[in-house]
């Protein structure tokens, strides 16, 4: 991950290795610890687990209405999904990070065309409304725009990978406006 020097007085999420946070979450899950809080380098982290045993999936709303139920996840690769989603749900609890999620079940594309450069890379600073990726479902191309300005500190998925409804795609550290 690209490490950027934090500006004075500003806590940097980059000071936290997100892999460490994932490990931490795994530990909390393993020990069945419900809530956890700590402070380091001026950044406070609080992790609170839901009551449902399956972390990630439980947060998805029980789909709008039955007739519009999103398609069932694909049989094969989905097996790996819960742990992945679980970890990213955990990352969400990192205060100050904004998580961009997928609005539909589909395929994640990092660029507009196969040979084109990706819309964003780790460490990029994005603006509100800037396109981060495309999620495709049944030839419906959904350009996901950033709803915050800030730095892309984590990309949870890879080009061409299937994604679930509500699955975390990016973590963005919002840039603070000067008062």
């Amino acid at each position: 991950m690209a490490q950027k020097t934090p500006r004075a007085g500003e806590a940097s999420a980059a000071a936290w290795d997100l892999r460490e946070i994932r490990k931490l979450i795994d530990l909390l899950v393993e020990r069945e610890i419900g809530e956890f809080e700590m402070e380091k380098d001026g950044l406070r982290i609080r992790i609170k687990r839901g009551e449902a045993p399956s972390l990630g999936v439980s947060t998805a709303p029980a789909a709008s209405s039955p007739v519009f139920a999103p398609p069932a996840p694909p049989a094969g690769p989905a097996a790996a999904a819960p742990s992945r989603a679980g970890a990213s749900e955990g990352a969400e609890a990192v205060e100050g990070l904004h998580i961009v999620k997928s609005p539909i079940v589909g395929t994640f594309y990092a660029s507009a065309a196969p040979n084109a450069p990706p819309f964003v890379k780790l460490g990029d600073v994005v603006q509100v409304g800037q396109v981060l990726c495309i999620i495709e479902a049944m030839k419906l191309m959904n350009e996901i725009e950033s709803d915050v300005a800030g730095e892309v500190v984590r990309i949870y998925v890879e080009n061409g990978q299937p994604v679930e409804y509500g699955q975390s795609l990016f973590a963005i550290k919002p840039s603070h406006k000067k008062p």
């Binding site: 709008s64 519009f68 539909i104 079940v105 479902a137 049944m138 030839k139 419906l140 959904n142 409804y165």
Partner: peptide
Amino acid sequence: LPPSAAPA
């Protein structure tokens, strides 16, 4: 519609 229903 919710976005999840839009592919139809």
